[in-house]
Computed example of a mutant assay.
Amino acid sequence: MLTQTTTRVLEPGDLDAALAVLDREPVANAFVAARVRVAGLDPWRLGGEMWGWYEDGILTSLCYAGANLVPICATTRAVRAFADRARRAGRRCSSIVGPAGPTAELWRLLEPHWGPARDVRARQPLMVTDRMPEDVAPDPKVRRIRKDEMETILPACVAMFTEEVGVSPLAGDGGLLYQARVAELVATGRSFAHVDDEGKVVFKAEIGAATPQACQIQGVWVAPEYRGRGHAAPGMAAVLRYALRDVAPVVSLYVNDFNAPARATYRRVGFRETGTFMSVLF
């Protein structure tokens, strides 16, 4: 047993202890918890390492180190330890993302070694709901995307990602990993869209991370020529109905604080702000 404060890479045998930490904040930790529940703690299957911080032999904090660097239930001392390990390993992630407090401290410690970032989004409200809105009817044309509709949904996904993140997801590996992720969401029935009679995507969103406790809506997008016509709120209500009925009892998302129209839409369909995330993009 570890009897002092220390950090180490977790192994498959640490799964129960890691899940206990993740379950302390099931909404905020949904992204990482979903991966761990599917892949366990084997780095190859998980797509990265899980670092653990121990105090008096008890696992108290985690940090997922893969394509994203994500502090989880991280105390101040744990953040310092994770930053030291990340600094020594060198930057391998495309972003740092997580609850604003620990993420900001992690970035403060890493910026002298990893900076500058391409973009820092210091305040991204975490929004949550567990019920359908009373005054917004779901768009009846929003439905699950079929496996044979990849050529329909993929351009909309690429457009959303590029607009949101500022770079194309098709760069680097030609988009193979991104296309595989879109295909996975379609195959598991978690990709939704309103497709018009000409085969063009009007509105789309996905249910990304999902655990028995909570799931997360992502990739919300309305085609530019359809914006301002009232598609967003009914579209969100439709995806929310699928999420609550088929996936989890609590639905969350996080949004940039400067995106006033999106925040207003989410409030209209019943989401309330319960916390704040932060993202550092490289």
Rank of each mutant, 00 (worst) to 15 (best):
L2M: 04
T6L: 07
T6P: 02
G13A: 12
D14A: 08
A18K: 01
A18C: 03
V27A: 06
V27G: 00
V27H: 13
A28W: 02
A28R: 13
N29I: 08
A30K: 10
A30N: 13
R35V: 06
L41T: 11
L41C: 03
D42S: 06
G47L: 06
E49A: 14
M50K: 03
W53M: 12
Y54G: 13
Y54I: 15
I58Q: 14
T60A: 13
L62S: 00
C63V: 05
I72G: 05
C73G: 13
A78D: 06
V79I: 15
F82K: 08
A83L: 12
R91V: 08
I96V: 14
V97R: 14
P99D: 13
A100Q: 12
P102T: 04
W107F: 06
L110E: 06
E111Y: 09
P112R: 06
H113T: 09
A117N: 12
R118A: 14
R118C: 09
A122R: 15
A122M: 15
R123G: 05
Q124P: 02
Q124S: 12
P125K: 08
P125M: 02
L126W: 13
D135G: 01
D139F: 08
K141P: 00
V142I: 13
D148P: 01
E149Q: 15
T152F: 07
P155G: 06
V158F: 09
P169E: 01
L170W: 10
A171F: 00
Y178S: 00
A180I: 00
S191A: 13
V195L: 10
D196P: 12
D197L: 10
I207P: 04
T211A: 07
G219L: 11
V220R: 04
A223P: 05
E225V: 10
G228P: 01
A237D: 01
R241D: 12
L244S: 02
L244T: 05
V250I: 09
A262W: 01
A262N: 01
R263C: 11
A264D: 06
T265N: 14
G275K: 10
V280E: 04
